[in-house]
Design a protein around this nucleic acid. Structure first.
Lengths: 153, 153
DNA sequence: TTAATATAGTTAGATTGCTTAACTATTAAC
DNA sequence: GTTAATAGTTAAGCAATCTAACTATATTAA
């Protein structure tokens, strides 16, 4: 006989699974992969803050993936002419990247449709519930990340 | 200048990203992949309901992946001795699968630790908030799945 | 100053989790 | 009986990572 908690736990697992297979990142008309879009936005965000570029290690750290992962994604974006690689004047090892004009256009367009998609989601579930969702998911993330640390030790 | 909704939208995107990269399926001591664990549990659930086995198409439908995906996972589980393939007496095409004794043991052990992990999560965020989370995520899933249908047409 | 250590990024290879295409055997519909 | 649909399988391909190994550069220690 399941306890109340066990029922909730099962429901959580199930909805987590469903979410895990969700395409909340919409497909790009320009044929970019999801990972590429995310990195593009990451670069855009940083350069909007006034930085001349963003380094592989910074993207890697922000997105919590390894730098070879970022390098491969950047290679794709570079091939598609959406980013350029610069030289860092303080550190010859570093390779800051920034958007090309083409990249900026792509980011702008996808930002708009992205934002539209999410503001509509907020309208769908309500503003207060959306804020609540952010809060709850943040705590879920915190729980599992702390659990992961414990497991490692 | 960002509107309130845009701020919430950004926060949602960010926490969705973090959540999507979360390992809420814990690693199996027996070296099983996450996908294998999920399929094992799917089989277990159905056979607990009294069915003699579950077909590829049923798993495929429940988990919302294609049948070649399921076949490949089943191949792995079969190799590891965790499932057996049966003959369907009504339809010679169908291949119902069920757990071996070994598979039952694996499912039992992982079910326990799985459930423990999630009941602790529920204790962490609270029972009412956990129920709220199920509800909210379910609506998020519904929103994006409906949005996907629209896009296809 | 030189040597040892650490760091930034890259390439290559491997794994996982899917998908689609093509196929065979079987079943259902006409 | 013939045609169309279905169940499952195999093979190949793609996306999204990771680790290992490497080179060049910067930092630290001797």
């Amino acid at each position: 006989m399941d306890t109340e908690k066990e029922v909730i736990a099962r429901n959580l697992m199930e909805v987590f699974y469903q979410f895990s297979r969700l395409n909340w990142i919409q497909n790009s008309p320009t044929g970019l992969r999801h990972s590429e879009l995310i990195v593009l936005h990451c670069i855009s965000r940083r350069t909007k803050e006034g930085a001349p570029g963003i380094k592989v290690s910074e993207i890697s750290s922000i997105l919590k993936v390894t730098s070879p992962t970022i390098t491969q994604i950047l290679n794709g974006l570079y091939t598609k002419g959406l980013i350029e690689r610069c030289a860092d004047k303080d550190d010859r090892r570093a390779v800051p990247v920034r958007l090309t004009e083409k990249g900026r256009i792509v980011v702008e367009e996808s930002s708009e449709s992205f934002l539209k998609s999410f503001t509509e989601l907020i309208e769908y579930i309500g503003e207060k519930p959306a804020e609540e969702l952010v809060c709850l998911l943040t705590r879920v993330v915190a729980y599992f990340e702390r659990k992961k640390e414990k497991t490692v030790i």
